[in-house]
Design a protein around this nucleic acid. Structure first.
Lengths: 352, 352
DNA sequence: ACAATTTACGGGCACGTGCCCGTAAAGGTA
DNA sequence: TACCTTTACGGGCACGTGCCCGTAAATTGT
């Protein structure tokens, strides 16, 4: 310690400017009650010192509690995908709690637009200072964004993005590139004369995610002049019976399908069908590290899973709000997650 | 706020035990000067309250600075691999600085055992309370571990492990499984009659990492009854000319090599050779997300890179020490990193 | 018995920042 | 000039914990 009796932080600023710490404080939080002259003088000193406030002391002194909300789909019987972001959110909460940040979680039904809208209303009633949201329904999300703009509440999108809204940040995959990677893996050892099947299983019709992914998938075929014919099918019911019925029909019409690509986490339903109908020679790729999928990965029915670290997404999403509201640091607007490739051989080390 | 005028933390414990906060403090830090009776009484209350100290206040009040050391290889001309862990360490340092933790970094020459031993001596002279170390040389590391045991200094291994030493934690890949994954990717579209070449380019002879990786690689061939013949070669010089010379010879002897697996980040040297000798039809897989490798990935010379998030390793390694020394929380002993698969299509989103 | 030593504990300041409250000075009105 | 309002600023306590210092009580020695 060479520097011995120096003052630190606010006190030192106050000493240099010949004012009290209270006045410095007023400037730092740009409150009223300081003349322009002294304000300028203090600001100059702050700049010169490159003053960084001590967050410990700051959070300790202010009893102000920051309230954040997270609005994500509930874990359904169909998929427990959202349990991962939820755990990431909880992890972030545990870390932030000692800094006086509280997180409240709101869940909605992915198959019910109204529950989404309803929970948004609840969130606004709660008077939160920052919101993490999965923008599952486009129109409702636009209204949500507009209201946040009016109230000056920062919000972060997670898992899928709606561009051109002024979200503080987007944390999630680059969907198009993700489809592109899927195509690469699917065709890596595919014979030229085989057909490729794209399967979309979803109740939602105007699915932005799905369109982006398929677009990327097809782009790979174009870029690399893949000769394979692409067949596609939309399945609006998510239960096994319906899926099996549709797939039976498609495989009947197209006897030379060599590979199938499922655009979401319901790939396990397709895997189940392939196994039951003794078609495990068909290469199969889909999304997300959920238990059912990993089981079929283990059994060699699914070849690859593409994942985007949903747990990390939840964590980073909350941390982005924390950075903005507590640390007051700049936040990266586009935060694309890695496109992870999970196989039978490496899944045991995968970290969501 | 339902709970209004309650006291928190140490004060509340003191009130309930009819002692002063100083006495509670003595118990919390098990210092001397408290009778067994009151000590027991206070401990009971602490347990009952499930008291969690406020780290903010704790770190703020204690001017004690915690000093951590990191001992890793320096970035050499051959490879800038270690710049990634270094950046992770720096990231951790930035986060910990405000909690009164300082990090000092010691670098050694990977090709010089003595520089490793010398830096270890420097570290011990520095009187650090925790050490992160890349155990690149086995014997020296064993002595290091013994000395740490004597001095009761916790240490964390990073990137490669030496089992049976009592490290606080190991942060790095499961090397054997990592080789296993390499074999899977390499054979995924390999014809049965082609040979597979394992290449080890390293000056170090007793390389534990390399043995583990090759063992895992071969295990995949056994487990899956892969018919391909495996050829292996050790190259002790790391410059391009030497590598090219050896490889020319091997490819001359074995005309039907269909795939090559390089056990470390020097895969770009092999890629260069394959490109120059017009052998880009050979599938090539190697390790680590370093610039040269990514360039060859981009040019389709390298098919896959296997990576273990070196940046994250540095970060987590330091954080393990932080958890132990500052938060006094339990630390996971084995912390295997994911085995990431990087391709031309997904590398732009890869996060070290 | 008394002094000398050790043990057990309390008082209270410090860490850096937030913010309430009090007040002197400046400006405004008659 | 006397009185009131507004502006500009300082004093000082609080946040929860660490730890120094002082002292009454218990223990030991003679």
């Amino acid at each position: 310690m060479e520097k011995e009796n120096e003052l630190f932080g606010v006190k030192e600023i106050a000493r240099r400017a010949n004012v009290s710490t209270a006045t410095v404080d007023r400037v730092l939080h740009n409150r009223t009650g300081v003349s322009e002259k002294t304000k300028a003088r203090i600001n100059a000193i702050i700049k010169e010192m490159d003053y960084q406030p001590n967050i410990l002391a700051s959070r300790l002194a202010s009893k102000k509690i920051i309230n954040l909300a997270a609005l994500i789909p509930e874990v359904s019987e169909e998929t427990d995908f959202w349990s991962a972001p939820l755990s990431g959110i909880r992890r972030a909460e545990a870390e932030m709690r000692q800094y006086g940040v509280q997180v409240q979680i709101f869940l909605f039904d992915l198959n019910d637009k109204d529950s989404f809208a309803g929970q948004i209303r609840h969130v606004f009633e709660g008077g939160f200072q920052g919101i993490l949201i999965s923008p599952s329904f486009i129109e409702e999300t636009k209204k949500f964004a507009a209201e946040c703009g009016r109230r000056k509440i920062p919000y972060v999108f997670i898992d899928s993005d709606i561009p051109d809204l002024h979200s503080l940040s987007y944390i999630g995959p680059h969907l198009r590139k993700s489809g592109y990677v899927g195509a690469k893996l699917l065709t890596y050892r595919l014979e030229a004369e085989k057909k490729v099947l794209i399967i979309n299983i979803s109740k939602e019709i105007d699915n932005y995610n799905y369109l982006e992914i398929e677009d990327g998938f097809r782009a790979y075929f174009n870029d690399n002049k893949q000769p394979n014919e692409i067949v596609r099918i939309d399945i609006r019911e998510t239960d096994y019976q319906s899926v099996a019925r549709h797939l039976t029909y498609v495989f009947h019409l197209n006897r030379d399908i060599g590979a199938a690509f499922v655009t979401n986490s319901r790939v396990h339903t397709v895997a189940s069908f392939l196994k039951n109908s003794h078609r495990t020679h068909v290469s199969l790729i889909g999304y997300d590290f959920v238990k059912e999928n990993v089981d079929y990965l283990e059994n060699n029915v699914i070849d690859f899973l593409i994942c985007h670290r949903p747990d990390d997404q939840g964590y980073r999403g909350m941390m982005a709000l924390y950075q903005k509201l507590v640390v007051n640091a700049p936040v990266i607007k586009q935060n694309y997650m890695p496109i992870d490739i999970v196989t039978k051989e490496n899944y045991e080390f995968y970290q969501n």
